[in-house]
Amino acid sequence: MARRTRTSIGTGRPTPFVYAMLAVVLVGSMFPFYWSFLIGSGDASTIYSQNLSWWPGGNFLSNAQEAISNPAVNFWKALVNSIIVSTVTAASTVFLSTLAGFAFAKLRFKGSGPLLVAVIATMAVPVQLGVVPLYIAMSKLGWTGTLGAVIIPALVTAFGVFWMTQYLSQALPTELIEAARVDGCSMIRTFWHLGLTAARPAAAMLALFTFTTTWNNFFWPFIVLDQQNPTLPVALSLLQANYFVDYSLVLAGVLVATLPLLILFIFTGRQLVSGIMQGAVKG
């Protein structure tokens, strides 16, 4: 369905110039990975070397091995925790955001305008002080030290709700909803069949963003979890627990920890490919 032939797509056919521009962007995007790999494949002094070779050294595997097998790091437990936390958070954020976005974008209810403004306003509150009250709240609820304390505050985000609202208001034709309702679909079935389908490309991206953000999140998990039950950034931060930090180990460890994300990218990438709704609208 997503693979409809697209002959006169978008704003034109790509010229070699477009490919050249995108290639520049791609090289720029990949640079940090390559640079991390360069440092991660050297030794502790590589990062401070004035004549950094653009050819990697030979220590990547041993550095990665050392980072992972450091007993204090607790890598495997952290990996499992990170997968749990990121997956649950991403799935829940996508579902609940799409649900709320569907309501805000396409359903009519009293107070929807002010409520949407309220959602957006919550994003404008600076979070730098939030850690203390949030900790107090989690502690009163008895959730500290558990993955729940990381997952629950992130189950749905204002960002996600706002995005899905805007996306669906554009991508989901109101006629379709009307048609579905005329056919006797309940509200939730309408959401299920139309809302979720229409939202798919944006939802896939929201999932990717949420997963990545959660995956890299350090500070809150650091406060509320401990080394016995960490997420990956909390566990890997131990590699920096020294007066002189060996960044070849840190970057090798970080790169290994990024691999699951890259794998996820390869799978999710296909979901982003295309406008499912054209088919639906026409059909």
């Binding site: 016995q228 931060s237 131990l238 590699l239």
Partner: peptide
């Protein structure tokens, strides 16, 4: 034993 990387954290 719980270790934080930096004294700041």
């Amino acid at each position: 034993h719980n270790v934080a990387a930096t004294s700041n954290d």
